[in-house]
Amino acid sequence: MSTKKTNYSYVGIAFILLVFGIIFVPKIVDRIKGGDITRTESRSKNVSANAEGFVSDLMFLEINGEAKKVPPFSFVDHHGNTITNKDYEGKVYLVEFFFTTCGSICPKMNRNLVEIQNTFTDSKDFGVASFTINPEYDTQEVLNKYAQNHKVTNPNWHFMTGDKDAIYELANIGFNIYAGENPNVEDGFEHSGNFALIDKNGFMRSRQDNFGNPKIFYKGIISEEEKVDDDGETEEISMLKADIAKLLKED
């Protein structure tokens, strides 16, 4: 009697597995092909290779299980043109928040960005989005002069100005890069010295840290030549160049 029950159990299990295979396996395969399956339950995921072309190993930043994408924005650039997030579609680009009268970290950040610009002069799919956090002073004319002084030649590098509240919301919520006013600090503004890396589809991407989570940002202040700053922090410009090259190869 126990043998019959055991046989019935095996038959039942086999039937369940068959049904599972018919219903769920195709869906799982579809999710893998679509890059939906995550490697961990952290705020990040890796992209899997597909049959259509190269896909890098750079991670996505995930918020509540969703890969973080650049939100819509619209500002005026240093040439007086209206630039939106759609102008960067199909391009790999870096994001910074700065202001032209900054005497501390901004000059270092933009020297490093020019160095990166000069590394990818042959790529029409690379760009930079520079948002001023002092739009009342940084008009289109001021930004244009600033771009000329810094030898900006990439046509996809836009220095943008516009509504201050919209810029601050874009920085702090859209890109998770801190920016704010502070009358108690030199120059009256505070902001991160980091760069965000965006892929051709508008997603924030980065390498993973030692714990398997995305680094999220790249240090923008220390140059390749310096290698290490006074606080012992190492440069990440060389890393950033390598990762831009990876994303430029993606479909």
Rank of each mutant, 00 (worst) to 15 (best):
K4T: 11
V11C: 07
F15D: 00
L18V: 09
F20N: 12
D30I: 12
D30S: 13
D30L: 15
I32K: 08
I32G: 03
R39G: 15
T40H: 07
E41T: 11
E41R: 05
E41S: 12
S42N: 08
K45S: 15
N46T: 08
V47I: 06
E52I: 10
F54H: 12
L58R: 05
G65N: 10
E66N: 08
E66K: 12
D77S: 11
H79I: 01
T82V: 11
K86R: 06
K91H: 02
L94F: 08
F98N: 04
F99C: 06
G103C: 07
L113D: 00
F120G: 11
K124S: 14
S130G: 09
I133S: 04
E136M: 05
Q140R: 10
E141N: 06
N144T: 04
A147N: 04
V152S: 04
V152F: 10
P155R: 12
F159Q: 00
K164M: 03
N172M: 14
G180D: 07
E186N: 08
F189I: 02
H191S: 11
D199A: 12
M204V: 14
R205N: 01
Q208L: 13
P214C: 14
I221L: 02
E233Y: 02
K241S: 06
L248V: 04
K249M: 14
